[in-house]
Simulated assay, not measured.
Amino acid sequence: MDVVDARIERILRAAGDAPSVLNTQPWQVAVTGTTLTLRADRSRRLRHNDPQGREMFISCGAFLFNARVAARRESLTAVVTVLPDPDDDLLVAEVALEPGDDPNADELELSVAIGHRVTSRVPFDDQPLLTDVLVAIQRAADAEGASLHTVQPSDPSHAEVIGLVRRAEAIAAEDMAARDEEAAWTTSWPGRDDGIPERLLGRAPSNDDAPVRRYHASRGRELFERHSTLAVLTTAGDSPREWIAAGQALEHALLVAATYFVRASFATTVLENPTTRHDLRQALSLSAFPQMLMRLGNVPTPERSPRRTLGAATT
């Protein structure tokens, strides 16, 4: 490969470290010269748990943000056009990589954080995050056109949010098609490069007030923290364009969090059900649309979920 191709390869590898729903990695990228064409991969969409493709587009938005950050590390500027073709609903973005200035210290720090950002499904330290850390994380989401609302254990709405999470999970447990779909992405076999390995699912919480997603494949129970910070990512609208923006905002926030050694885990079942998603919006008096619910806290760096090879994600 020539120098430009080597840069693009590094950018794509970093972009592929983005979080995605159940580690489905629902993206495909075509490379033409120095232009990347990012498409959502419908074959990797969760048809029962994500029928509108909302979480698929959020995942692609996270990939897109990583590509932007990784480009700056290579002294390139990513000129992004989101949803460039109204007649092609799977064409997420076109990214033209143009020569740019050398990265500044903040850009380098974010690019390094890509390799440290890991989803954690184990108990966190039993304490809320410091205010200045939360402010930095919130500003990262703001920079991408979204907002991050925090819910502390002392907030009256905290218990209501947890109750909605448990209610959504109870409803989902009755949907055998959705359960089978989750099982397909949380089952391990040698050499698998997607999905969440069973060993990384963590144990189910033994306390009902734990803000943790319960997976049917989890083995055993464990007492989780009671005082971690909950955060809800919102956008003003609720269309694919906003979902892609939410993905970029999510990853920006998670990378900043990683610079403070803060990890996240996601409780998305409550947002996969239209009724409980609406009820969550009401419970928190949100004028905007909730796109992601997560808990944030400190924990030693866990093992990373597998990733597809570069060739498997590019065309």
Rank of each mutant, 00 (worst) to 15 (best):
A146R: 03
P84E: 05
A249F: 06
A236H: 08
D180W: 09
L64W: 00
P103M: 04
G100K: 02
Q248R: 11
V135S: 11
G115K: 03
L134R: 14
P128H: 07
T301F: 05
H116P: 03
T186P: 04
S59F: 00
L255C: 07
D85V: 05
L90F: 13
E55N: 11
A258Y: 05
N273C: 08
V21K: 00
G237Q: 09
L255P: 00
D142W: 07
D5S: 15
T229G: 08
S239F: 10
V151S: 01
R166S: 12
G53Y: 06
D88L: 01
G61T: 00
L38K: 00
S287Y: 13
A93K: 04
L164C: 00
V212K: 00
M1T: 15
G145N: 03
Y215P: 06
T268F: 06
V122K: 12
H158S: 05
A105L: 12
E169N: 04
S43L: 10
E182Y: 01
D175G: 09
D85A: 09
T81D: 15
V118G: 03
A173Y: 06
T275V: 14
R307I: 08
P240I: 03
R139Y: 14
A136I: 09
V80F: 06
T34Q: 12
V21S: 12
R42M: 12
T37R: 13
L110I: 02
V165I: 14
R121E: 08
S59N: 04
Q52M: 11
R308F: 07
T269E: 15
P300V: 01
A136W: 06
V161P: 01
H227A: 10
F65C: 10
R68C: 09
